[in-house]
Design a protein around this nucleic acid. Sequence first.
DNA 1: TAATGCATAATTGTATACAATTATGCGAGA
DNA 2: TCTCGCATAATTGTATACAATTATGCATTA
Lengths: 232, 232
Amino acid sequence: MANYDVKQEVTDKFSLRGRVFHKLRDDILSGKYEEHEELKEVAIGEELGVSRTPVREAFRQLELEGLIQIIPNKGAYVTGITEKDVQDIYMIRSLLEGLCARWATEHITKEQMEEMEENIYLAKFHAQKGHLDQLAELDNRFHDIMYEACNSKMLEHQLKDFHQYVLRVRKKTLNNANRGPKSNEEHEQIMEAIKAGDADLAEKLANQHMINAYENMVQSGLHEAYQKEKRQ
Amino acid sequence: MANYDVKQEVTDKFSLRGRVFHKLRDDILSGKYEEHEELKEVAIGEELGVSRTPVREAFRQLELEGLIQIIPNKGAYVTGITEKDVQDIYMIRSLLEGLCARWATEHITKEQMEEMEENIYLAKFHAQKGHLDQLAELDNRFHDIMYEACNSKMLEHQLKDFHQYVLRVRKKTLNNANRGPKSNEEHEQIMEAIKAGDADLAEKLANQHMINAYENMVQSGLHEAYQKEKRQ
DNA sequence: TAATGCATAATTGTATACAATTATGCGAGA
DNA sequence: TCTCGCATAATTGTATACAATTATGCATTA
């Protein structure tokens, strides 16, 4: 419900502008466009079968997200995302997820707590069965629950932005390594800490959870693979 | 130089769209528009003497900044910023400024270090003379230097966003209380820690610096005054 | 009187037209 | 050949026109 607003806010997926925005963001993050590549309004518009207006509005949003840079009267250039950017994001997220866990400990509702427990229970099931897609989905959802539970519109907003950023990279990670089950175990520990009302521990665990996710990504070499994929 | 990109990226101040965007953001943050007030494209356009196109583009950006909520085919509604939002922002900033100070310790250049020292020296002078405007300006600049020195595009981007958010509130604070000189003393301590290469201390001091700024704002009652001003 | 349905108005969504700015290419001159 | 300058093309910035959706108000009816 609180989530409903946010989803709407993040931008309508059904309007042309919304579709253009999401398409371009996906394409930039997935590496379809080279870094420093110029995006032309008419070209994008023709490709997606829309006029320049929705494209321009999408450009303005992408600029604010830092994915493209618009030089007035010149053009829009893809900013891309370097390996260091990803690392920085994980470090920043580590702090913010920690704060989120702390606040969630103080503000979580009974319903949210139950959904969290259900999430972990389900994830265990899918981990056993080897359903990696569902596992990734549940992993995302766990974090969303925590974002909502922290009772801070501002923090939730920030974290969802970052989450979007690394979603693509992270999904690969969960699918390819055996990070999924390990991640879920960490979720369970965080959940237990929140349930026990131990904010310090919850914060610390959430901090570490992000660092582990990053370490795993780097170790498994998937991030490098992702980077290479971008170049080709 | 690195800053040049960012300033541009934050949005051109000279295009109509840029001007509309900044005007609306200022008006929302300063409380000209009530919370939940509906913003109409034609009305805004006529008021600023522009067509709907730049207004719409500005709306899309404001939505992404979380300042308004756009409901498709219905309208744009002011989200506003509550007292709790401000508090949350300061807590988030506290963590991120700490991380920024840590990274700045590891990456600051000689030039940046010199500008920092000059900044603090100048601020001492203006503090003695009671030049509150210049003091506020130097305070902002100190933080900008640190954002640049941290060598992280992502973190710099985040912190500058937040900085914008609280700029209006903070300026009042510096102008009205004797926070200015105290703030500069804290800057000096942070600078010394960075200079000494003590990242842990720099982080801790930067953390506390934000918390102090917030505490001072609340204690001096200026934030409440700001809130009241919004309502009338 | 209160509720319903429909016509009309208001507002947003999208497309297109025109203006302003920037990039490109070619020819003249050294 | 190389450089400069200008004409032309390409591209973005803004305004307006049209379409789709939503809000409003009034008449009708139970």
